[in-house]
């Protein structure tokens, strides 16, 4: 009787956790399986002479458990645990990412509002906004660092700006889309009340845009972490994940598990950040109005 309960009686959250862990276990199994196969065949596909694309020795692919164990051992002889070192770096990077996220989201939201208000601004600025995202962030970051260096701004703030550079774009695009989502009759209703443009914005357009905003904020959250990590490199910040990753990459052949460990921690930062946005979405947007992804066509006006 007990066993029958499991599948259907699970709460959605529990089910999500189980599927997450299941996929994690699958990925670990693929990794270890590949490694085991390579060791068994001497680095070729079974039954052929064709070399495997990735070597399976400890230098290229450490065991998954070695990565976890590496986290628990001192980063360097007599020093703090690697996990602790990485978490400190992650917290440092996350501070820049958070500021960048907030800054980028505010700028993105502001641009969305500007564009919905002024077709001229949209026509003039939108191409630049799009172009800004095709320039590699690796090229932008050092420029910003040098410019800011003359202005005497603290460096982690510069990193935040690099992070904002990546974060603002999805927010701008989706804010604009959301602000435009109410149907024409709703706008005409506001017109019949002789509502001021600001009233239309805050009472109709912004509430209508909220469901569009959150999927963009999730993207912005991950983008801001990437922006912060990349931004730390030219800023030569010694304390963040960027430096840690660079160091462990240099020492990859000696201790590959440390680089993998820092990748793990970096992705946990991103996941945690997105998690916070999801929590905010759950508290602010009722289920009936949530959009699952960006490709969702339209928020329907009730009765429309």
């Amino acid at each position: 009787m007990r066993a029958v309960r499991s599948r259907n009686a699970m709460s959605p959250n529990a089910r999500r956790l189980v599927s997450f862990l299941g996929i994690l276990a699958f990925l670990v199994a693929v990794w270890e399986g590949y490694k085991w196969m390579g060791t068994a065949t001497g680095g070729v596909w079974p039954g052929t002479g064709i070399a495997l694309p990735v070597r399976t020795n400890e230098r290229s692919m450490p065991h998954t458990w070695d990565v976890v164990f590496a986290l628990l051992r001192p980063a360097r002889r007599g020093g703090d645990m690697l996990l602790l070192v990485l978490l400190r770096a992650a917290l440092f990077t996350w501070r820049s990412a958070l500021i960048g996220f907030l800054l980028g989201s505010a700028v993105g939201f502001g641009l969305g509002v500007l564009f919905v208000r002024s077709a001229l601004a949209e026509r003039g600025l939108m191409p630049h906004v799009v172009a800004s995202q095709t320039v590699p962030i690796l090229a932008i970051a050092p420029i910003l660092v040098v410019w800011a260096g003359r202005l005497n701004v603290t460096r982690w703030l510069v990193v935040a700006v690099v992070s904002a550079y990546l974060a603002f774009f999805p927010v701008a695009i989706n804010t604009l889309r959301g602000l435009r989502s109410p149907d024409a009759t709703a706008s005409e209703l506001m017109r019949s009340y002789a509502a001021a443009p600001n009233q239309v914005l805050w009472k109709l357009q912004v509430p209508a845009a909220l469901p569009y905003l959150f999927p963009a904020l999730k993207i912005a959250a991950t983008a801001s972490v990437i922006g912060a990590i990349v931004g730390e490199l030219p800023a030569s910040m010694p304390d963040g994940l960027g430096r840690a990753i660079l160091n462990f990459a240099a020492a990859f052949s000696a201790a590959p598990e440390k680089l993998f460990a820092s990748i793990l921690v970096a992705s946990l930062v991103g996941i945690g950040f997105v998690g916070i946005v999801v929590l905010a979405e759950r508290t602010l947007i009722p289920p009936s109005r949530r959009l699952e992804d960006l490709s969702e066509p339209q928020v329907r006006g009730v009765g429309a």
């Binding site: 009472k203 329907r300 429309a304």
Partner: peptide, 27 residues
């Protein structure tokens, strides 16, 4: 003018009371 269209065009994030209050709020 008071206007009513074929679709009710209520704001889905507002409760019924708040929907009726909308024009009054604006005014």
């Amino acid at each position: 003018y008071g206007m009513v269209f074929q679709s009710a065009t209520l704001l889905e994030w507002r409760r019924v009371q708040a929907n009726v209050e909308l024009p009054l709020e604006i005014m």
